[in-house]
Every structure is written in structure tokens, then in C-alpha cells.
Design a protein around this nucleic acid. Structure first.
Lengths: 151, 151
DNA sequence: CATATCGTTCAATACATACTGAACAAACCA
DNA sequence: TGGTTTGTTCAGTATGTATTGAACGATATG
């Protein structure tokens, strides 16, 4: 084997961090997600800050974002004062749902513009409508996947 | 009508600017794209800088990015020294292609990690594979739309 | 009760990068 | 040929936001 498992784990965590950044999320949020995908188990708040070598404030912020998106869940352990976090049960469904909401919002905004264009402006309207349709098609496709995953 | 056509146009251009920003593109690139979607005609380099009230350097950079993504085309006009730019013929196909390429890249990176995980690590491997599958499904869906659009 | 530990908040900082504008080369013009 | 106009480049600046770390309230512990 070229790399140790530990090296592969670190590389994976960093990859997800970069991907999160590309998606407009804080990099640390992506690294937390990557760590929890890899480990699968419940990891303590302090352990996250320790392993990722970032401040507790960053962990607080990152976990809040991931919780909002339903990508992770907060867990209480008996006899433990710390919070624990674990990958949620259906993280990829949640990702798709977030993607769909984002696409729908984009379409809604363009549709709003469309409503402001007088019918006489047929060509402008056609071009803007084609743009809205782009998001509509994407949203529909994502919705199809979601339906499949749930069945 | 609540807004003049000109106001609707400006609002649309700004919307696309913000959307570009959310997609990791420079805001000005989005505004150029929005303007060209709206107008449909060939617009000169100087006119873009003038209308959007930005530097020529920014127009140079924005148009380069949009040209690379095949969202717009550069046009030469007889007797005109300036460059002109116009919305490309199939801009939304190009958008989908860019989306697909991005999804495929993400999947490839995760697959690379997957190959580094020993088979004995069944659970880790399953979680990472599920993540790769997320991108695989999305890519396949986008590809389906592309096939439809081309037929 | 006093002390310790926990997660959150927020002002200050670090950081990445979009944008500007001057310098430049190339192409055109007089 | 000298002077304009054109688009590009790139060093410097501006801008947005991620991250830190100290202060804080809440809660457990002894």
C-alpha cells in the first residue's frame, strides 16, 4: 500500500474541506463533515477541535451549519458533559434536498424577472425563460433522484 | 406596470451577478452574462465597461472566463476595431456541461480515496462509497438532461 | 457555595481574491 | 513615422468573510 490508512483519512478530510469551500461553506465545516463521514461514530466537541487543530469557536460555528443542513446530528451521552456529533442517517438525501432548494430559489428569482417583462418583448422573454428553464430542468432531475432514494 | 423595463433589466443583471458569485465566479462575470442574456445582440467591449461601470481590466477578465466556459462568443465586426461579445448559441447546454464536469471531478477525487482504503475497512469504505455515489447520481441526472437537450 | 467545564458569541485579525488602473504590446490611422 | 485605440497583464488596493480567542452564561461537580 502506498499510504497508511491515517494518511488516506487526513487526505479525505482535507478534500471534503476544499469541496465545502467550493460550495460556499466554511472550509472547517467541510473538514468536520469529512471526519464524521470517515469515522462514522459519535465524536466529541473537544475531539473535533483537537484533531482538526482549530478553535472551539470554529467547531461551534461549523457544527451549527452542518446541523442546520441536517448533515450531522448532535448526540448526548450519559455521564458525559460534552456534546457529541455524528453523521446523520441520511446525509446524502439532505445534500440533495439542499441542492434542490437552491435550484428552486434560483428559478423563482428568474421567474420573478420574467413576470416583469411585458409580453411584447418576446425575444428578451424567450432568453430569460430559457435560463429559468435551465434551473427548472436541474431541479426536476434532482427531484427524480430524491424520489428514487426514498422508495 | 410597477417597474420600467430598464429597471427590470438592471435588476436582472444584478441577480445574475449575485448568482455567479454564489457559483464561485467573479460577480462582474455574472453581470456581463446577465447583460448579454438580456440584450441578445453583440455588445462592444467598451460598452460593457461603460454600462457596468467597471474597469476595462475587469471586462477583459470576465469575458475570458465566460469565453472559456463557452457561455459567450467573441465577435469581430467589419470596420470596427473593438471586440464584440454575444451570448453563445447554446449557453445552457454549456452550463450543464460545466456542471457535469464539476460533479465528475468531485466523484473522481472521492473514488481516488476509495481506492486507497483497504477492503477490510468495510464500514468506512461503505460510507465513502455512498458519498461518491451521490455525485455519480447527480452527474448521471445532468447527463440525462443533456441527452434530451441535444436530441 | 466555589470551582471547573462546557458551548456560544462577537470583536479583532487573518486571509483569499475581486477589482482597479497604470503600463504595455499590438494593430490601426493620419 | 508618430500618435490613437485596443485588449491584456499585473502589482497594489479594497472587500468580504473565515477564523481566532477572550469573555460570557449555563451547567455540572466537589
Amino acid at each position: 500500500m502506498r499510504h497508511t490508512l491515517e494518511e488516506t483519512r487526513s487526505a479525505f478530510i482535507e478534500k471534503i474541506g476544499l469541496k465545502a469551500q467550493a460550495d460556499g461553506l466554511p472550509r472547517i465545516a467541510g473538514r468536520v463533515l469529512g471526519l464524521l463521514i470517515w469515522d462514522g461514530t459519535a465524536v466529541s466537541f473537544a475531539s473535533l477541535a483537537d484533531q482538526l487543530m482549530v478553535s472551539r469557536g470554529s467547531i461551534s460555528s461549523a457544527t451549527r451549519i452542518l446541523l442546520e443542513r441536517r448533515l450531522i446530528k448532535r448526540i448526548a451521552k450519559a455521564g458525559e458533559r460534552q456534546d457529541f456529533f455524528q453523521l446523520s442517517d441520511a446525509p446524502y438525501v439532505s445534500m440533495m434536498e439542499a441542492t434542490k432548494i437552491s435550484l428552486d430559489n434560483a428559478k423563482d428569482e428568474i421567474d420573478a424577472t420574467l413576470n416583469d417583462i411585458p409580453d411584447a418583448q418576446t425575444e428578451i422573454k424567450a432568453r430569460v425563460a430559457a435560463y429559468a428553464d435551465f434551473y427548472g430542468k436541474m431541479s426536476k432531475a434532482v427531484d427524480g433522484i430524491l424520489t428514487d432514494m426514498r422508495s
